[in-house]
């Protein structure tokens, strides 16, 4: 028996297979299919104006789902984003109505830019609270964010007594006009909310693929112990992703209340579930360590365009719920097909 000399490491060419191609691009193909089907069913669907309207709705979910993606990459979950969205909307609304300072006997009307910054700070603060609970006090993410979800919603209800702040337009005498700019204006025909979404997505994408922090995030989501022993500051990573998620929920809250020019404490209920669905449809693994911004964006558009399409062709909202659920299950099924193979033990 003689030794056959073989090349030490066979170079692996990526084999092209149609199945694999479809599997990896599934969210993209799903989106194309949705657009095709609804364009066929309704003449109103495939128009530029409809796409812009749908996109500005998707923007809210999209912004939330990017924050959710970061949290899920870390192996966690953030159930509080819907409530943070509402809380931040209410906080912004309260500031627009004027902050009464009893001891000074004056009512302050902060300018819109200050409202925006303060609101984002509130969202980030609540997110950071999540992060601290989870990373330092070792509360499981599901439980910590569930608790914060209730607390944030409750605070929002308390602040408004259950009512809604209407008319957030501000007034010229008070120097606080412009709040509706976020929700209504367009630059080169594109709604501001879509531009905000695109900016957030590009920044998050760059962070994930090109920065050290992105690498830390993928590593600590994939195997926290190994990441820690490799010098990854896993706690800081954790607190940061929840903080970002909270801040993005605040931005979504601002966009939403600006679109509605009102801010209510019950806004954004169950939005966290939609955000999770978008991330999952986009191919991320709930166990952490796997997922991309591109996938998540596709996931958000799949959900948004699907439900908008169903509305346009006049399908009952009960059926919408059924369809959305089916899409989520299908997506998870394909995730497990994709990640189930190629991995091995030993």
């Amino acid at each position: 028996m003689s030794a056959t000399t073989a090349p030490a490491a066979a170079s692996r060419k990526p084999e092209f297979s149609i199945g694999r191609f479809l599997l990896e691009g599934r969210a993209f193909f799903a989106l194309i299919a949705i657009i095709a089907v609804f364009s066929f069913l309704s003449p109103n669907y495939f128009t530029l104006s409809n796409f812009l309207i749908m996109s500005s709705q998707v923007a809210i979910y999209g912004i939330l789902s990017i924050g959710m993606l970061l949290v899920i990459l870390n192996g966690g979950i953030d159930l509080s984003v819907g409530s943070i969205l509402a809380l931040c909307g209410v906080v912004a609304g309260a500031m627009m109505q004027g902050v009464e300072l009893d001891w000074a006997g004056v009512i302050l009307y902060p300018p819109v830019w200050a409202v925006v910054i303060l609101t984002i700070a509130v969202g980030a603060g609540v997110g950071a609270l999540n992060g601290v609970l989870i990373s330092i006090f070792k509360v499981p993410p599901f439980v910590a964010t569930l608790g914060v979800m209730y607390v944030a919603r409750g605070v929002a209800l308390l602040m408004t007594n259950g009512l809604t702040y209407n008319n957030l337009r501000g007034s010229a005498e008070l120097g606080n006009t412009g709040f509706n700019w976020l929700g209504f204006n367009r630059i080169a025909g594109i709604p501001i909310s879509v531009i905000v979404l695109a900016t957030v997505a590009v920044l998050a994408g760059l962070m994930l693929s090109r920065s050290a922090f992105g690498r830390w995030l993928y590593a600590s989501g994939g195997n926290e112990r190994a990441a820690e022993l490799s010098g990854v500051p896993t706690r800081r990573v954790k607190i940061t992703v929840y903080t970002i998620s909270g801040a993005l929920a605040a931005i979504a809250g601002l966009v939403l209340s600006s679109q509605l020019t009102s801010a209510g404490p019950t806004a954004g209920t169950t939005y966290e579930l939609t955000a999770i669905a978008a991330v999952v449809i986009g191919g991320a693994a709930l166990t952490g360590g796997r997922g991309t911004v591109r996938g998540t964006m596709l996931g958000a558009f799949v959900i948004g365009f699907l439900s908008a399409g169903l509305v346009i062709i006049g399908v009952s909202s009960y059926w919408q719920t059924v369809f959305t659920g089916a899409v989520i299950v299908l997506a998870v099924l394909m995730n497990s097909i994709q990640y189930g193979r190629g991995a091995r033990k030993g």
Binding site: A219, A226, L229
Partner: peptide, 9 residues
């Protein structure tokens, strides 16, 4: 497995 490698990378 536990401390050395990140299996998803």
């Amino acid at each position: 497995q536990r401390d050395g490698l990140v299996q998803t990378m």
